[in-house]
């Protein structure tokens, strides 16, 4: 019998009777990271990497039953050993390693291979079977080093500031926002953040993540702060209402999807910067090969194409359907993680 199986509730480990990132209510949920498609509300008990302590409580409720573990630390459940290893996706994100009677599986959760300088970098974990995400599992998705995108963002902000405009940059409130904050040059001007981002910043600062100082968006006042400020907000918050007081402004998104010109243009924003917290296509291939796994299970993205590609490369690869959502999927680029 397989060590991990895909059930309607989620990824299940029969000998331990626990689930990884379940999307239905279960007794015990092992969590790879705090994004909403992985850490869902209503589980009886949660186990997660320790950096998620505040974030999970902020998102799922103060009183959730939560056990935390450090990276590399292992816990044993019914003779199955579970450990959490850096996935490089967002602060606190982990791959979950599962070992039982000499057989090792790794569930990747979401990951990226580039070290973003904020989140502990992705560590390849040797295993027999690797459950990988493949949000960007097509060769058209290939990222430049993040320094290229940050240079472009800084330049965009400087030029806008010089022209008397404000900047509105959209990115998910958990992960993308903090990565942007840690990569953007804060000396250009004041940075304001949407409340949902402020809440996540606080939760991460409490466990030791250092982020530049920001101001609450509600405190922005044209007379006090002038123009040339940068505002970070989650994509779902773009209702046009609060943007009004920032006029004149230029807006942009930071996402892997804008690698494709058509996607970029359809955002109907002024700019699109290619920054993703998911591995690009070469990154996925590199990560898979580093695990040494013979068997690969693809979830989360272009599963059919990517698993076919892996099979052509000689791997035993298959796809499994999950309710994970990647960075939105090409068809639905709304608020997903």
């Amino acid at each position: 019998m397989s060590l991990l199986v895909f059930k309607p509730e989620g990824i299940f480990c029969p000998p331990a009777n626990v689930y990884i990132d379940p999307w239905r209510k279960v007794e015990r949920a092992l969590i790879t990271h705090a994004h909403a498609d992985h850490a869902r509300w209503g589980q009886r008990h949660y186990v997660a990497q320790e950096h998620n302590e505040q974030v999970l409580r902020a998102r799922l409720g103060k009183d959730i039953s939560l056990q935390t573990v450090a990276y590399g630390e292992s816990i044993s459940i019914n003779g199955v050993r579970f450990s959490w290893h850096p996935a490089g996706h967002i602060p606190g994100s982990a791959q979950i390693r599962v070992e039982h009677r000499g057989e090792i599986w790794v569930a990747s959760g979401d990951y990226k291979v580039e070290n973003d300088g904020l989140t502990p970098a992705f560590e390849p974990v040797p295993c027999h079977t690797f459950i990988t995400e493949c949000t960007f599992g097509m060769p058209i998705y290939r990222w430049q080093p993040q320094s290229v995108a940050f240079a472009a963002i800084n330049q965009w902000w400087m030029e806008a500031a010089a022209a008397g405009q404000n900047c509105v940059l959209f990115g998910y409130s958990l992960g993308k926002a903090q990565r942007l904050l840690s990569g953007i040059d804060p000396s250009i001007g004041p940075i304001f953040v949407h409340p949902s981002i402020a809440q996540m910043n606080e939760a991460l600062a409490a466990v030791g993540f250092q982020l530049p100082a920001t101001l609450p968006l509600s405190s922005y006042n044209r007379k006090l702060h002038g123009t040339g400020v940068l505002v970070l907000a989650p994509p779902g918050a773009a209702d046009g209402h609060w943007q009004k007081k920032l006029e004149p402004y230029t807006d942009a998104t930071a996402s892997g999807w804008v690698q494709v010109r058509g996607n970029r243009r359809r955002q109907s924003l002024d700019r699109g910067f290619v920054i993703s917290d998911h591995a690009d296509y070469p990154g996925l291939l590199q990560a898979i090969s580093a695990t040494g796994a013979e068997k690969v299970i693809c979830t989360h993205g272009f599963t059919a194409l990517f698993s076919r590609q892996l099979r052509e490369m000689g791997l035993d690869a298959q796809e499994e359907h999950t309710l994970f959502m990647g960075e939105g999927g090409a068809a639905a680029q709304e608020e997903t993680e």
Partner: peptide, 19 residues
């Protein structure tokens, strides 16, 4: 795979530039 990329991008010149 190239055909799938083209389908995804919708423009041959761009698809080739990306891959």
């Amino acid at each position: 795979m190239l055909a799938e990329c083209y389908q995804q991008v919708g423009d041959l010149a761009e698809t080739l530039a990306l891959v």
